[in-house]
Each structure stands twice: as C-alpha cells, then as structure tokens.
C-alpha cells in the first residue's frame, strides 16, 4: 500500500512539474459537459448502474454519478461514453 501511495504521489508531482494534463498521467476521467443536455466522459472503466434517472460510471478515481431525466447512452466505446438527456447533477463518490 505504501509503495502504491508513493507511486501515486510521485506521478502527481511529476505531472505537475511537467504540466502534463491529468487524464494522461494520472488516469483521471476527462468529463466534458455541454449545457445540461450532453455529457462526455473519456477514460472510463465501465458502467456500474444505468437507469433513466441515474448513471453511475466507474473511473480511475472512484465513481461519477450523473443524475437527471430521460438519460440515454448515446455512444459507448471501450474508453469513451456519451450521455444525453436532461442532466441535473454530477457528483463524485
């Protein structure tokens, strides 16, 4: 565990030093939100739960929860995901 934490810390400092974007180095999800109608997540790890009102997506750093109405998954690729519908909130668990 300590070795893993140390690795993480080193990576973070390294990427900060070189000003590399986080999604490249740290395996963070890149989330693009268009108004409240479309959401795009790159670098995801799969869907945990999907209903019309809630979409939970696994990412490198825990889980992204999208609340809304009439949510549909417009595209689903191994590392990219488009959610459409009326998006009310996004939270990280």
């Amino acid at each position: 565990m300590t070795w893993r934490d140390f690795k993480k810390k080193f990576k973070k400092q390294f990427s900060e030093f070189l000003e590399l974007p986080g999604d490249v180095m740290l395996d963070l999800p890149k989330i693009v939100l268009f108004g409240n109608v479309q959401l795009q997540i790159e670098n995801h790890r799969g869907i945990i739960e999907y209903t019309a009102n809630i979409v939970r997506v696994a990412t490198g750093e825990g889980e992204v929860v999208i609340n809304g109405e009439n949510l549909t998954l417009r595209n689903l690729l191994p590392d990219e995901l488009h959610v459409e519908g009326k998006i009310c909130s996004i939270s990280f668990n």
Binding site: G46, I47, Y50, T51, A52, L71, T72, L73, R74, N75, L76, L77, P78
Partner: peptide
C-alpha cells in the same frame, strides 16, 4: 462487457 470487448454500442436507453 460488450464495450470492454470492443463492441460498439449506441443509443442505449432504458
């Protein structure tokens, strides 16, 4: 599983 095996799915809705 489909997505991770490289199968492209779209217009998914409940």
């Amino acid at each position: 599983m489909a997505a991770s095996r490289g199968i492209y799915l779209w217009d998914i809705s409940k």
